[in-house]
C-alpha cells in the first residue's frame, strides 16, 4: 500500500518538475503533500500527518498560487 502511494508521489513530483503550466505543477506539489500525509498516517505518525496535510496541501499551495499570480503562469524554459 505504501509502495503504491510512493510510486504516485514520484510520478507527481516528476510531473511537477516538467510541467509547462506552473499552476499544474503547483497542484502536483499539493498532491505530493497530501499523499505524503497519508503515508505518515499509515506509518502510525498522526501528528506529523496533520502538520504535513495542513502546511503542504494548504499553506504552501496558497503561497505558490499567490506567487504565480504575481508573476507568470507559464514556464519559459
Amino acid at each position: 500500500m505504501i509502495e503504491a502511494i510512493l510510486a504516485i508521489v514520484v510520478a507527481a513530483s516528476i510531473y511537477a518538475i516538467l510541467a509547462r503550466d506552473l499552476l499544474h505543477g503547483v497542484i502536483a506539489l499539493s498532491v505530493t503533500s497530501v499523499l505524503s500525509a497519508s503515508i505518515f498516517f499509515l506509518a502510525s505518525a498522526p501528528d506529523v500527518a496533520i502538520t504535513e496535510a495542513a502546511v503542504g496541501a494548504g499553506l504552501s499551495t496558497i503561497i505558490f498560487v499567490w506567487a504565480i499570480r504575481n508573476t507568470e503562469r507559464t514556464d519559459r524554459s
Binding site: D47, A49, I50, T51, V55, L59
Partner: peptide
C-alpha cells in the same frame, strides 16, 4: 490525542 500547538495553529490559519 494527536495534535498540539503547531498543528492546531496551522488549521486555525486555514
Amino acid at each position: 490525542s494527536p495534535g498540539g500547538g503547531f498543528q492546531g495553529g496551522v488549521v486555525l490559519a486555514s
